[in-house]
Design a protein around this nucleic acid. Structure first.
Lengths: 219, 219
DNA sequence: CAATTATTCTAGAAATCTATTGAATAATAG
DNA sequence: CTATTATTCAATAGATTTCTAGAATAATTG
């Protein structure tokens, strides 16, 4: 095999990985999977895709080596091949955020209050949690909480937040988190809590970013 | 705008970045650009694509925010938007190398001697260069060397290596480098030098990786 | 064993991507 | 001003992707 040929083949292989990630729905699926293992059915529901379509997208991700699966009973559970896939997703996010004006515009438009919601870094949360000063609030759906969450975090899915406000100590600051840096759940939660007069901030990044920093996870 | 809509749009923006990188030729162009600024013409020659085709690929990269360009005289020079694009390319490479069996197979097939060519890490090269123990050899084409190279490196493009062997001190170890971790130029150079009885190793990664570690570049 | 559930497979239409070709534009040189 | 050089634009054919819908498979339940 010639050098040019080798190089060409190699770059085509790299392109396969990028191609697998070149579709918005597949990136959403990867973000869901970054929260933990999920069945095809659950992923279809979460993404709003049809079952057959979800299955096909997952198979593309699998062929590119980004996810793996296992069969248990008559369900198939998919999972990320490794946390470096999550990290790759983060790199794409960062590059997009830095160089695509549309991303900035979108984030600004939707999260107008962005500046007033200055996020708290993982390191700071760790410290304040150690001192017992904060309530760590996971606002993702129950299934995602169950398959892994921040140590000591309590789970109140966003939709149920208003009904369970009494579970939160009104005198402690709340730090909310969800799936990732652009996940709106934590934004909305902080907004609602502040409306109720509580002190609330959101964590910078979500569970996947927390894991990538090598911080402990409870489940 | 609804939450679901926002999320969907956002992930589609991220997908644009991945889509721009989902083609082998475009990844090759990005690797060339990671060596330094280049004209469309030069990139067409290096990649083997036609001029029009090269121009179109570059425009796709530009629309995804990955590259920028400037006009000087009647030439247009393209450049990476930032080193984080180079870093993203590296992440894709890593994921592909780790999870795609085909990549391993390709690298093993072509670079059979891989194991005997254990690369020297940047940190070690720095140390040994400081002690004056090694000749740092850049085997990329002259243009790439000119637009930036390792401090103190001498340039002998691979094709001319045999003719210029006398420029190398036979008693000093040679460390060769080129464009990146899978660039064959340095592999071939090390092979040739060893055939001539010289002590030679290749640097782990190429110039872009060196820059990403924040190490100094000369030009 | 029949019915049910979860997933995958197959086929096809519409949309998108890629490479090629030749024409158009823009800057410079003569 | 004309010719030349470097790049982009526009049109097109062929290949690939994406989504849908219904059939097929595989494991479990009754």
């Amino acid at each position: 095999m010639s050098t040019a040929h080798f190089k060409h083949d190699l770059f085509n292989e790299f392109a396969r990985v990028a191609k697998a990630m070149s579709n918005g729905y597949r990136l959403e699926l990867l973000e869901f999977l970054a929260q933990g293992e999920r069945s095809v059915d659950a992923l279809a529901q979460a993404s709003g895709l049809t079952l057959a379509n979800t299955s096909q997208h997952l198979q593309q991700l699998k062929q590119a080596g980004l996810v793996g699966n296992r069969k248990e009973g008559h369900k198939v559970y998919y999972r990320l091949s490794g946390m470096d896939v999550s990290s790759l997703l983060g790199s794409i996010r960062d590059v997009a955020e830095r160089y695509l004006a549309d991303v900035d515009r979108l984030v600004d438009d939707y999260l107008k209050v962005k500046d007033s919601l200055e996020p708290i870094p993982a390191s700071e949360l760790l410290e304040r949690a150690r001192e017992g000063l904060v309530t760590v609030l996971d606002v993702r759906p129950v299934e995602e909480y169950v398959s892994g969450h921040l140590p000591g975090a309590i789970n109140i899915p966003l939709q149920e937040l208003e009904m369970h406000l009494d579970e939160l100590d009104p005198d402690r600051e709340v730090v909310a988190y969800c799936r990732g840096p652009h996940c709106v759940l934590a934004f909305d939660a902080v907004f609602k809590l502040r409306e109720r007069g509580m002190t609330a901030r959101r964590l910078e990044g979500g569970l996947p970013e927390w894991k990538l920093e090598g911080l402990p996870v409870e489940s």
